[in-house]
Design a protein around this nucleic acid. Sequence first.
DNA 1: AACGAGTCCAACCGCGGAACC
DNA 2: TGGTTCCGCGGTTGGACTCGT
Length: 293
Amino acid sequence: MGRAPCCDKANVKRGSWSPEEDAALKSFIEKQGTVGNWIALPRKAGLRRCGKSCRLRWLNYLRPDIKHGGFTQEEDRVICTLYSQMGSRWSVIASHLQGRTDNDVKNYWNTKLKKKFLAAAKDGDIPTNNPTTVQNYYNFGLAQSSVTSPMVAMDTDAYGSFSANSLIHHNEYPIFNIPCPASFPNNVSSELMGQTVSPSQEASTTVSGSSNSLALDEKCASWAGNGGGDDQYNGALMDLGFGVPFDVSNGFWCQEAKADDQVGPSSVDFTADAAAVDIKPPQGLLQSVINQY
DNA sequence: AACGAGTCCAACCGCGGAACC
DNA sequence: TGGTTCCGCGGTTGGACTCGT
């Protein structure tokens, strides 16, 4: 048996809402609420509309806390970052933006932001999957304002692309913490979980576990699995101040690890002369976006 | 001025899943 | 437990508007 229609299609009005309909819906909901039943609402409110249409009109347009108008650079940043992380989960993305609806965010992405994103890709700001050929830093549209990240603090364009000469120096950008997230793989010693290493310009700081270490000195931040075995790096996440952790194992490469570092290709090594350091967004997610177009 | 292409965005559609009976 | 109802979501559509020729 098929599903019953939510309303009598022949007797409901469709298309744009008139100011009178808006007023009736707004007035009813402000007085009565939605009473937990959108299907019954239009009849009670005296509207010849489908309940779903009423719900959409209220949530996307009439709600008092809706923010209309252009998106800010900070909102661009949030959308790009979250889209790169989770794809088209518009409702989740919208929940991170005060007063924005999923429909708003979706429309904005499809009509404007996606193009900016792709233009950046064309310009080479988005690295390829080959770490040997890309020298750019890319940070998902992060602008320099408001986020305390050494990368963000640098001079960026609207897409947060950096030139190959934009190096990360801890003594210039001391706000640099590396929380060890709970999502480190099981074989990482528990002593490292949840600890934060703060930068020191004078001396190196190391948090050691039984077989692993997280170190930060004025030249180098590194996560080292001293016990050997690549799986110790797999799935490691690092928060560089973007608000979301980057997958270190997939997202970062170090082409020029120092000889005395016990780091593998999936660790991070920001050295003072790291012209070859190559920072990538989480592999696969960004590429999947690019592949769509 | 007229027309077509492109852009924007409100609204619709259909599906998945939660809630309810 | 299974069927029904409803909500919320993401994808898509269509009409209004803008811009270029």
